[in-house]
């Protein structure tokens, strides 16, 4: 018997239902993931804390426009690259992944504003929700997270500032 040949050669391939095996892999991943997160102390819940217990107020389009007219300060929660390309005119940058570094530099500006409106890019709203939650944790009372992203705010008539050719903004 060529044992080494059988080990190296592996089991002779017999066709198996590819789709069913792929589905089984997905089910296994879901079962493993949910079990781990249920049993382990570092497990996460079904929903992010920004949705489970939001401490900010959600603002619809009309409310965002009203806050804008009242002089609220707009806070851009997107990454620095997106902010550099286009942003609401007058908005300050506070990326969700750079809160600890950027917030101390912006603190006095944020404290002087009558209200803060945080906006993000698109569907997820996560960066804006995270920044909104952070600002509430810092003690700011009037913190709103826009339900609409930058594109929708621009379509609603709020002025934007784009990067000029040559990289200047």
């Amino acid at each position: 018997m060529n044992v080494i040949g059988e080990i190296i050669g592996g089991e002779r391939r017999r066709p198996y239902p590819l789709f069913k095996v792929c589905l089984a892999i997905l089910v296994l991943a879901m079962a493993g993931g949910f079990s781990f997160n249920l049993l382990m102390p570092q497990g996460i819940g079904w929903l992010p804390p920004e949705i489970m217990s939001p401490r900010y107020a959600l603002a619809g389009l009309e409310q965002v426009k009203a806050l804008h007219d009242q002089g609220a300060l707009f806070v851009d929660a997107r990454d620095a690259g997106s902010y550099a390309q286009v942003r609401l005119r007058g908005a300050v940058k506070l990326p969700a992944d750079e809160l600890d570094q950027v917030y101390p530099l912006l603190k006095s500006t944020l404290e002087a504003a009558p209200a803060l409106v945080v906006y993000g890019r698109s569907l997820s709203r996560f960066p804006a929700a995270k920044v909104g939650q952070f600002l509430r944790d810092q003690g700011f009372k009037a913190v709103y997270v826009s339900e609409y992203c930058l594109d929708s705010l621009q379509e609603a008539g709020l002025s934007v500032q784009r990067r000029r050719r040559g990289g200047q903004s």
Binding site: I25, L26, L28, A29, M30, G32, G33, F34, F36, N37, I44, G45, W46, L47, P48, E50, I51, R78, D79, A96, D97, G120, R121, S122, L123, S124, R125, F126, P127, A129, K130
Partner: peptide, 26 residues
């Protein structure tokens, strides 16, 4: 996963957990 701002916020946790476990199983 949430930073990409591509999926609804309510699905972020579930999608990231399944994706991580898919990778390790694969």
């Amino acid at each position: 996963v949430a930073q990409y701002d591509l999926i609804p916020l309510w699905s972020v946790n579930a999608v990231s957990v399944v994706m991580a476990w898919l990778e390790i199983i694969l």
